[in-house]
């Protein structure tokens, strides 16, 4: 009884949150605020997509930048070189990512545990170096820059000309929602059941007649599909890509972090991970804290601490990020979500 009430309350809460998100741009027009929200949706999409292969299937790919980059490059290269509108080019980018995932899957799924992790890194690095070394197609290290996006039209009707952030906001939101729904669908399907069986015990799953190769590849394919879509979105939103922004190892790690900080193998985990990481990295990077402390008079501008905060704290953001990662892993091995659940269940018990 109680759980049904709780789930009803949960549904209401979820719908309310959704309504707030949909209405958000109507009340907040500040592009910076929209930008942060867009980054949040993008991170959620990335985290959820990784979660399907990493969280549910237990294959810790640290090479997802390859799919992200494939989506991004496919779209922008076609747009720049052949003037193919991004809503078609995007699918070419996604197709490249899917092919890549099949190739990578066939190579890497023969390996397990740490070997799989290292192989996924190696393949992603090969993709990055290849993009860097075929400038005739990809512009190499110079990257691809698009000054203006063609307006999105249906028939003769201009849906949007992308002059503000609002269309991007809704696209990103839609992308995040679709990825979450897909994760939900996977979790509640036979497919998801097989995935989780593989995660829990590969050999046992195999002996039950679950084809490891087929289902691992299926999971990677789904994961790569949504990661590539996120890449497509990123490319169209930023309109500049190069190998160091859409293909580096750092990005792969970042994607894994979103899921793990939040809690893997759950639908809410990556959302929470994004909610923690994106605002945190933005606040730390832009040094808002130091500014506030100084302006409020808590810390004098010319005092030693003030000079340190203003001059050096901006440099410390990656350090704080690193400390956060270590703390979460040591004290919340199931991620923030797992930690909260544990606290809640402890409370319930006594």
């Amino acid at each position: 009884m109680k759980s049904r009430a709780a789930s009803a309350a949960g549904t209401v809460l979820l719908l309310a949150a959704l309504a707030v998100l949909v209405a958000f741009p109507a009340f907040v027009s500040n592009p910076y605020a929209l930008h942060i929200m867009i980054l949040l949706f993008l991170a959620t999409g990335q985290g959820e997509a990784w979660n399907i292969i990493g969280g549910y299937t237990g294959q810790y790919s640290v090479g997802h930048a390859a799919y992200f980059g494939a989506g991004a490059y496919g779209t922008l290269v076609l747009l720049q070189k052949w003037n193919i509108a991004p809503w078609y080019g995007a699918w070419a980018g996604v197709a490249v990512a899917l092919l890549l995932s099949l190739l990578i899957g066939t190579i890497c799924f023969r390996l397990r545990g740490p070997y799989f992790v290292l192989a996924s890194i190696a393949v992603a690095e090969i993709v990055r170096l290849t993009v860097l070394n075929v400038p005739s197609v990809t512009n190499g290290a110079e990257g691809v820059l698009i000054s203006d996006l063609p307006p999105f039209t249906i028939g003769g009707w201009v849906v949007t000309d992308f002059s503000t952030k609002v269309p991007f906001y809704y696209i990103a939101l839609a992308l995040a929602i679709v990825t979450v729904l897909a994760t939900w669908a996977v979790q509640n399907s036979k497919l998801g059941y097989y995935f989780q069986a593989i995660r829990e015990d590969q050999d046992a799953a195999h002996s039950l007649g679950i084809s490891l190769n087929f289902y691992k590849n299926a999971a990677l394919l789904i994961s790569a599909f949504f990661t590539a879509l996120a890449g497509v979105f990123y490319a169209l939103y930023v309109r500049f890509i190069d190998p160091t922004t859409v293909l580096p190892l750092d990005l792969s790690v970042q994607i894994v972090l979103i899921a793990i900080i939040g809690g893997i193998g759950t639908i809410y985990g990556p959302m929470i991970g994004a909610l923690v990481l994106i605002p945190l990295s933005e606040v730390l990077r832009s040094n808002v804290i130091a500014d506030l402390l100084i302006k409020s008079g808590l810390v004098g501008v010319d005092s030693g601490l003030g000079i340190f905060l203003k001059g050096r704290l901006a440099q410390a953001h990656v350090l704080i990020y690193g400390i956060l990662v270590v703390v979460v892993i040591l004290f919340m091995p199931q991620g923030v979500l797992g930690f909260v659940r544990k606290l809640a269940s402890r409370k319930e018990q006594g």
Binding site: G54, Y60, V62, G113, P114, V117, V253, V256, L257, I260, I264, R312, Q315, A316, V318, L319, Y321, G322, I323, L324, V325, V326, I329, L330, P333
Partner: peptide
């Protein structure tokens, strides 16, 4: 030592975190 028995992805991330701490402390 505290993560020896834990999930491999957590071990990886922990060492990544440690690396970030080392390089950025040195930078500061």
């Amino acid at each position: 030592n505290r993560i020896l028995g834990s999930l491999p992805q957590n071990q990886i991330l922990l060492t990544i975190g440690l690396g970030l701490i080392m390089s950025n402390t040195v930078m500061l």
